[in-house]
Amino acid sequence: MMARRFLTATALLAGSAGAALANPKPWQLNMTPGVTEMSRQVYDLHMLILWICVVIGVLVFGAMAYAMFKFRKSKGAVAARWSHNTTAEIVWTVIPVLILVAMAWPATKTLIEMADTDDAELTVKVTGYQWLWRYEYVGTDVNFVSKLDRDSDRTRMLRSGLDPAAVTVDGENTYLLNVDRPLVLPTGTKIRFVITANDVIHSWWVPALGWKQDAIPGFINEAWTRIDTPGTYRGQCAELCGKDHGFMPIVVEAVPPAQFAAWLGETDAIAKAARAAEAAPAVAAAPTADAGASAADAQ
């Protein structure tokens, strides 16, 4: 019964699935710009420092290559005697400092923005467990766990003989990147995450959102996002948390706000009903064990 209602809830999402897929691609060489303003800033920062490093690298390695080619004994080179040059030394101390300032400046700006979790319209509490995630929509009764999908789970067993390539959704390989129940989020909304863990440290990471944040037992870490494009965004736990660390993915399903409101409303209603049903058996006793079980399911 509960299962069917859950299906209708996910059916609501079907329309948006596939709008933007953030699976990693074979032979992918670089980070993706992601789907938020912050993730794009991070991407730009990444490209900036990458190119600066490439340029410095070309200069330094170029000079080395030239020297190796030009000043070799076999070509009759005779060693000079000098062993320092104050001007040069000052130049190559000062210029790197300037380059660093040029990098630090945008980095600082981005970081300050990322740290500002104020004025969020929705708060989601994320709790890491060995080895699944629990999501609570703060202020509602919606609260569920999300863990590795069954297909991946069967395939990933030692010498299962199953082919990881066969684990797909809509033609995209989702091996180890799919869950039984995704986290549904609205687009265009500032969402604040409060992140913690129940046993050991985990880390909640969806690359398309541009950051990861550790989940520390006993403490809350905060982060935020505002997703531009509807779509399915996949990530993984990014802090070693025991034997199944590699098997606790994260899937974010971003949908337009109206659709999200509908989904949240319905899911909340289900959860509230389940809670009521859970409270009831205390009075009505035995036969409703089934309802208790499905309430736990919905939890």
């Binding site: 509490k125 409060v194 913690t196 006993g218 403490f219 809350i220 905060e222």
Partner: peptide, 17 residues
């Protein structure tokens, strides 16, 4: 102090302790 909600610990205190 963080556990007690001081400084950066407001959320920690509010949600957990």
């Amino acid at each position: 102090p963080w556990l007690g909600g001081v400084g950066d610990g407001a959320a920690t205190n509010a949600f957990l302790w």
